[in-house]
Simulated scan of single mutants.
Amino acid sequence: MGMSTETEPAESQHEAAAVDKSSMRVRSMFTSIAGKYDLLNHLLSLNVDRLWRRFTTRTVPPEPGVPVLDCCTGTADLALAYDRASQGRSPVIGTDFCHEMLRLGNGKVKKAGASDRIVLVEGDTQRLPLPSDTFGIVTVAFGLRNVSDTVRGIDEMIRVARPGGKVAILEFSRPRGPLLGRLYLAFFRHVLPKVGQAIAPNQHDAYHYLPSSVLQFPDGQAMLDLLTSRGLNATEHYPLTFGIATLYVGTKPLRGAAG
């Protein structure tokens, strides 16, 4: 099922085609907005992004003593959520290729008294500097669509998950239906860039990039099919807040198991 109007798909495809997701551009963009990133996320989602992360930790709960990896961790919100969910009993590693975001994330980790449990590492999700078959849960929240090569990012997440481990992807998605679909597109294309620009002046490009990157990213069944094609089993998805965001979950096969 797609959007309800006949003109929207063509507009969406044109907008998506214009998105430059080169690593250099994305790193530079997030460095420039790092100081306002948390404020904008919480404001633009009316703080519902906190509930989405909590839902993720409850739907894919950590096991005591089993490490968790949060890719594209940004300022470490999901890494901190997993530390809280495990009551500090599971080590958490967060990776991101934006140094400034990690600097802010380390400040939050220290403030939470979790420096002995959460380690933030500078690294690209396309080339994770971590060993294979290690983590019980590998997550990413609102970051996979910013990875230059989505498939390569997913493959790396699967590589570092241990056999039987979970891969969990929390990402913006597109609500279906005539009214909500149109309202969503109008908000993302016209309202969100203006709000972002008001809070973070001179960062016009960043808040036009967001709607474009969401519109070009696979969601719903397309994402489930992609995860299955990369080798994950038992894939499921959970639309959140009328489909504005979706949690996708898959399981890495046990060794010797059929794909």
Rank of each mutant, 00 (worst) to 15 (best):
L104M: 06
K252L: 09
P239V: 11
N47T: 02
I93R: 07
P91T: 08
T241W: 07
V119G: 04
H204N: 12
S213I: 07
T73R: 05
L232D: 07
G65M: 08
A258E: 13
R176L: 14
G259F: 06
Y238F: 15
F135A: 12
R27S: 07
C98N: 14
E63T: 12
F242D: 04
L179A: 15
A258P: 02
D155G: 11
R103K: 10
E100R: 15
G2Q: 13
V140Y: 02
G196K: 00
I118P: 11
C98P: 00
M223R: 05
R127V: 10
A257K: 11
K166C: 11
S90E: 08
R117G: 10
D116K: 14
S90G: 07
L183G: 14
G250K: 04
E8D: 09
L224Q: 11
G123K: 10
K166R: 15
L40T: 02
Y184V: 09
M223V: 07
D219T: 13
S45T: 15
N41S: 10
I199W: 08
Y184L: 10
R58S: 12
G153P: 01
L46D: 00
G123Q: 07
L224R: 14
P178T: 13
R84V: 06
P61L: 12
Y82H: 06
A168D: 03
P218C: 08
C72G: 03
K108Y: 12
G65Q: 11
V66C: 06
A234H: 13
H237P: 00
D219F: 06
V214T: 08
L43Q: 08
S115W: 05
E171H: 03
R58W: 11
A257M: 13
I93N: 02
V60W: 03
G94K: 09
I169Y: 04
P9H: 06
G250I: 03
T251P: 00
V119D: 05
T139G: 14
M3I: 00
I137V: 15
G136S: 04
S23W: 01
L226S: 01
L102F: 12
G196Y: 01
T7K: 15
D205A: 15
G105Q: 13
G164S: 11
N202D: 14
P178H: 11
A10F: 08
N146V: 07
A222Y: 02
L144N: 02
R53G: 04
P178L: 14
Y184D: 12
F55R: 14
T241L: 11
P129R: 12
R54M: 04
P218S: 09
M1D: 04
N106T: 02
F242W: 12
L232R: 07
D225G: 00
A34I: 10
T251M: 02
Y207N: 03
G196T: 01
Y207L: 02
P67N: 02
V214P: 05
T75G: 06
G136V: 05
L192I: 08
P211Q: 09
D219Y: 09
A245D: 01
R174N: 13
F142P: 04
S90L: 08
G35R: 09
W52D: 12
D155H: 15
M223A: 04
E122Q: 15
R182G: 03
V249M: 08
G143K: 09
R103F: 00
T59Y: 09
G165V: 06
A18S: 13
G256L: 04
S115I: 05
L120M: 13
V60N: 06
